[in-house]
């Protein structure tokens, strides 16, 4: 029996459908909750979020993976209500977006404690919400080199992934040599790791995507839609065609299409930053999939990228 943890409980992998594998209901750096600049009423949060999820569902979207880690505004009770009301499966993360988003309590914790915490959130639940995490988030801190804390989090994540069978999703795939060394030391097969953000405008040039793929890792082109063509692009934006060409070049490699996942990393309703106007998870349906079809990908290829690969990655392996 294959299964995936969603916030409303385990579901069969076969039910995932089309997956947006790296998204956010709402992300905010820890501490942003103290700054009223960003506060929104619950009415506003639902009003910004529900229509996007409903449209995602209407487009044929099945599952929304929320890559918001602990301390970043992750709010599982809220996700549960959104999922129940919109019919979109939502998978929540344990782990951290990066060491620089882990608060002092966790920054001081040992690898053993962090692993225990991740395992608890995957097997017992997140707080007292009843929702379990379906993925482990890790990441590289600002600066592009793994800090000691980043490394402890990666190691703990590897152990929790081995114990529980869930996958690991990374924020950034720079400094991958250090990441892969840790996963190898811990004995975690690299197909349990999705190396994300290989396509972002700041890091794409420094990210060894084909090398990581050669080692067996999965590759996430998951900042689709953060384009320099937007009216007010963020600093990690990239020209639309450049990103698409990068993606097409990558999947043209032998067997590469089985290793690739794609997503938009959009916020439905950002928590601690203004967000990027006009960018939503539905970029996948409104822009990316049409672009891929125009580039000659057939329906089988699209199903591989958005259905089969995420199902294999997300399904609990034990």
């Amino acid at each position: 029996m294959s299964r995936v943890n969603t916030v409303l409980g385990p579901i069969p992998t076969e039910e995932l459908g089309l997956v947006a594998v790296h998204e956010h209901i709402g992300y905010g750096m820890p501490g942003s909750e103290l700054d009223t600049t960003w506060w929104k009423t619950p009415e506003q949060r639902y009003a910004e979020t529900v229509p996007k999820l409903r449209r995602f569902h209407e487009y044929g979207g099945g599952t929304f993976v929320d890559a918001t880690g602990i301390c970043n505004g992750r709010d599982v009770d809220y996700y549960r209500s959104l999922s129940a009301k919109t019919g979109v499966h939502i998978v929540a993360s344990t782990g951290f977006v990066g060491g620089d988003t882990a608060l002092p309590f966790f920054a001081r914790a040992s690898v053993e404690y962090l692993a225990e915490h991740f395992v608890h959130e995957i097997t017992v639940g997140i707080g007292d919400t009843g929702g379990r995490a379906g993925i482990i988030k890790v990441g590289v801190s600002r600066g592009g080199r793994m800090t000691d804390l980043d490394k402890r989090i990666y190691r703990a994540a590897a152990r929790a992934a081995l114990t529980t069978g869930v996958g690991i999703l990374t924020h950034l795939a720079v400094d991958a040599e250090n990441a892969i060394a840790i996963f190898n030391e811990e004995g975690l097969p690299l197909d349990r790791v999705l190396f994300g953000h290989v396509d972002d405008g700041v890091n794409a040039d420094k990210t060894r995507d084909t090398w990581i793929a050669d080692q067996g890792g999965r590759i996430g082109f998951d900042t689709f839609g953060y384009e320099t063509e937007l009216p007010d692009p963020p600093f990690w934006a990239r020209p639309r065609k450049e990103r698409l060409d990068h993606f097409l070049r990558f999947i043209s490699g032998e067997g590469r299409i089985r290793q690739v996942l794609a997503s938009a990393d959009a916020n439905c309703s950002p928590l601690g930053w203004p967000g990027v106007r006009g960018h939503t998870v539905n970029y996948l349906f409104e822009d990316l999939i049409p672009d891929l079809r125009a580039a000659g990908l057939d329906e089988a290829a699209i199903k591989t990228i958005f259905v089969d690969n995420p199902a294999d990655f997300l399904s609990i392996k034990n």
């Binding site: 750096m29 501490g31 942003s32 103290l34």
Partner: peptide
Amino acid sequence: EMLGGYFLTPQT
């Protein structure tokens, strides 16, 4: 050390 990342490594 006790601050959240919002104050130390903002999204800028």
